[in-house]
Write a protein that binds this DNA or RNA. Structure first.
Lengths: 351, 351
DNA sequence: GATTCAGACTGAATCGATCCAGAAGGAAGG
DNA sequence: CCTTCCTTCTGGATCGATTCAGTCTGAATC
């Protein structure tokens, strides 16, 4: 068993307070005594104050929690999530804080427990529409938190983009090129829905807020161009990855009535769409594709997409947690987006 | 202030133990009383047992630490490190444990402190040759740990590959194709060395164990083919990323005596090498390139490389931590590697 | 010589739970 | 009726530190 601070105190013949001070407040004791304490401590194999006990007494932990809506191990496979995490990590480094990644079990009760048991000073929540009442659980613990969901509650700290306007800009690019018959591709557009083509009565029915907002933004542009929501094809992918995007686009049957463009809610889905179109022989961009995020793979693939600052998002979220704005109304950071036009989009081919 | 367990106990009129049991050991009290306790707790806004206090008393935390040799935010930019982390996360999910990512300050003392202050039950150390005495600090705390460095100490838990043999296989592929004049490309080959071409008297001088072993493996194959270490060109990149790899290869001057192949110690460096060669107009693989790791970008780029199982490495490391082998001698897991031949390598062009 | 003051160190209270030996009460067994 | 045995609940010890109000000592000030 490792010795405790108490044991060191006894060995040196001083009080516990003094040993504690030797570690945490060097100015509270003479240099010689401090050295003597540290020496015997080392010699006894005392590893320094127990972090847990210290946290308990001090009332703070020195770590912030990061919560992902999806399974934790999936989060790492999503390039944009990784960029977010990179930003959070940068901030954590600067503030000398650790990052606690908390896996959330799929069941509501389990997720709740996981959040309640996390020893942290606050939370960064990545892209949750408060599925499973996570946010409420955090609030219940009285811990500060920052979300990146589309719908911040009044007074909550938040960092994000104008999802709807950003999506609209991509769609307007396509309407400008003459596209009217298009497919919208999102992840889990409707709950429990099969993959592939879907009938969605109303955009408001889409449960995931980010997907909903982006689809709505797409729809805005097409409405302005005279295309009704009901005339848009909606494709759903069961996962937010390349393969699922490809599979969804495969479900479209080719033909004179098939879409001239695919607007995806994320780059990974868009890249999948490109894969599928290439496999189907639709070379030379007979079908335009747009993505969202501008991940690293987008540029080499020539994907036209909406760029949002991933690392910046993470950095800002963490910063908002570490030094909270004096005025609560300053707690919402809106980041800007840019449409990046590459080769994956072009005018409607005359058939 | 949030109420404590004590406050709930008083409100219900029972002892603290009973409230504690209501949360942690439902079988220790009647169902009705338990319900009554839980109800008043909820109503009082009691968020459940304080995780830190619980950890202190119980003596375990429910989180494992993950340590990276490099800056934490850099780790996320390295695709192979992310795959490792994905594997660790998978295991953590299965074992209901959280992951504490601890940023290590650059200075030795700071790094030591960071490790000492981490509230965890054990550590996974990614790719450290015990820089800064990290391993010793962990050992000093008496915590279990798993390393992935090339040189495990007797009895330490470890998961990794035979770096030297794996590297040798890549080099043998090239000697088989007739290459004799080649460049070896690694990250920080010598301490404080300038980027680019380097004189390395002996492979043993390379400080980073992984780089050292891989370079040694390359050298083995060439030695067998009659090429001495001193006849090999060594290139050093200041960072382990694509840009640095490209820059290092740029420093080679073209000419009849220039290398016919570049053997990189990682895929990102190799991809950078390809970038540089392409930029220099060396199209049609007049220069062969090999990488190491087989990250996702390797296949689309046609990069010949040594595949090592990234997620598996993380998964095994975490598993080794969560359920330690009964027999200490079983604590070393050697994963296998495969040479994946793609289009980036070919026979020496006849000039 | 009395007073003040700074520096060095101590001790008890505290952080918020969990654990364990044991008490109280009632049911079952002989 | 007395034992034995459960079930249910209690109280105090404990986990390993930090904090803060003091105490003590010796030097400086007037």
């Amino acid at each position: 068993m490792k010795p405790t601070l108490q044991a060191v105190a006894e060995a040196v013949g001083v009080s516990r307070s003094t040993v504690s001070n030797a570690y945490g407040r060097p100015d509270q004791l003479s240099a010689e005594l401090r050295q003597r304490i540290l020496d015997t401590a080392r010699q006894m194999g005392y590893p320094g104050p127990n972090p847990t006990a210290r946290s308990l007494r001090r009332g703070f932990v020195g770590a912030i929690g990061v919560l992902f809506t999806s399974r934790l191990s999936y989060a790492f496979t999503d390039p944009f999530a990784v960029r977010f995490l990179t930003g959070v990590a940068e901030a954590a480094e600067r503030y000398d804080s650790s990052l606690l990644l908390v896996p959330l079990p799929a069941d509501r009760a389990g997720a709740r427990k996981a959040v309640e048991n996390a020893a942290v000073d606050g939370f960064c929540v990545y892209c949750a529409g408060d599925e499973g009442g996570i946010i409420d659980t955090i609030r219940g613990r009285g811990l500060p938190f920052v979300t990146t969901s589309s719908r911040p509650r009044e007074g909550d700290r938040w960092v994000g983009i104008d999802e709807r306007a950003a999506a609209r800009s991509a769609a307007e690019h396509l309407t400008g090129l003459g596209h009217r018959r298009v497919a919208l591709l999102g992840h889990d557009v409707l709950p429990d829905a099969a993959a592939g083509r879907l009938r969605v009565a109303d955009v408001a029915d889409v449960p995931h807020p980010t997907t909903r907002d982006r689809l709505a933004g797409f729809a805005d542009a097409f409405a302005a161009a005279g295309v009704a929501w009901s005339d848009l094809t909606v494709l759903s992918a069961p996962d937010n990855d390349r393969a699922a995007g490809a599979a969804a686009v495969h479900s479209l049957d080719a033909g004179p009535e098939s879409p001239t463009a695919v607007l995806a809610c994320s780059d990974v889905l868009a890249l999948g769409a490109l894969d599928a179109l290439r496999a189907a022989g639709e070379v030379g961009r007979s079908v335009s594709v747009t993505g969202f995020d501008d991940i690293a793979e987008a540029a080499p693939a020539g994907l036209t997409t909406v760029r949002q600052p991933g690392e910046e998002k993470g950095r800002s979220a963490a910063a908002l947690l570490f030094d909270p704005p004096a005025d609560a109304s300053t707690g919402q950071i809106l980041l800007s987006t840019t449409l990046v036009v590459r080769t994956s989009t072009g005018p409607v081919p005359r058939s």
